[in-house]
């Protein structure tokens, strides 16, 4: 049995309501979870169950309607816009299903972006971005633009970008949604490797039960915006 780890991500009665026309739609309703530091946690659930909303809230892209979020002891749910931007820049890296790379910039320049917004000097930026691309096996593709890269390569670039400022939390929103099964396995394997090698806390939204069971330590199941169950995996 593995030793107890300190909680790293804690949510209490987390709720998010959207106004669609005149109708209030609850995307999340009273979700309380705890993710221990250095764990690889998968979030699964049917479409519309609130997985991506949960991830956006954890990543500081969105703010909750009610409840609290704590990451690494910092109260994310109480942050103002400027502090949230800083949190996204330094503390929580995110990758997405559609990669979200900037098409007009090379792989290296995409990885540089978080460093640029952190005010890192251009020369140092280049060095650090190149190292990160090397770590994800894409040193030879540094000068290529996203359209010149395969889906798997684009997702690797996105992973390198998410790690640029050395966050302790990596959030992945269906990172394998646009990839074939072999590449999906490679990407999730890469995330698992980072989780182990860097003691990185990973929260990944995924539909792929097989991969989830193979790589995640824990699986959170959401249904209709509520936590339907938690189960330990591998």
């Amino acid at each position: 049995m593995s030793p107890a780890r300190p909680p790293f991500v804690v949510t209490q009665d987390l709720a998010k309501t959207y106004l669609v026309g005149d109708v209030q739609v609850a995307a999340l309703a009273g979700v309380s979870i705890t993710v221990e530091e250095g764990r690889f946690v998968a979030v699964t659930g049917a479409s519309g169950s609130g997985k991506s909303t949960l991830l956006n809230l954890l990543g500081g892209l969105d703010t909750p309607t009610a409840g609290t979020i704590e990451v690494g002891g910092a109260l994310v749910s109480g942050m103002d816009r400027e502090t949230l931007a800083r949190y996204r820049r330094l503390s929580a890296g995110m990758i997405f299903q559609s990669f979200n790379l900037i098409a007009s910039r090379t792989a290296l320049e995409n990885v540089e972006l978080p460093l640029l917004f952190a005010g890192v000097d251009k020369r140092e930026r280049r060095v650090r971005a190149a190292e990160l691309l090397d770590q994800v096996g894409l040193a030879h593709r540094a000068g290529h633009r996203p359209t010149e890269l395969s889906g798997g390569e684009q997702q690797r670039v996105a992973v390198a970008r998410a790690l640029a400022n050395g966050p302790r939390l990596l959030l992945a929103d269906e990172p394998t949604g646009n990839l074939d099964s072999r590449t999906s396995r490679e990407i999730v394997g890469l995330l698992a490797g980072l989780n182990r090698g860097r003691n990185l806390t990973v929260v990944m939204v995924s539909h792929e039960e097989g991969l989830v069971r193979e790589f995640a330590h824990e699986v959170l199941r959401l249904r209709d915006g509520r936590l339907a169950g938690t189960e330990a995996s591998s």
Partner: peptide, 16 residues
């Protein structure tokens, strides 16, 4: 629009 979203997601502030 999307590019602005990406920049914000990777840490760009409103001021940036």
């Amino acid at each position: 629009y999307r590019e602005i979203g990406v920049m914000k997601a990777v840490g760009a502030s409103d001021g940036d």
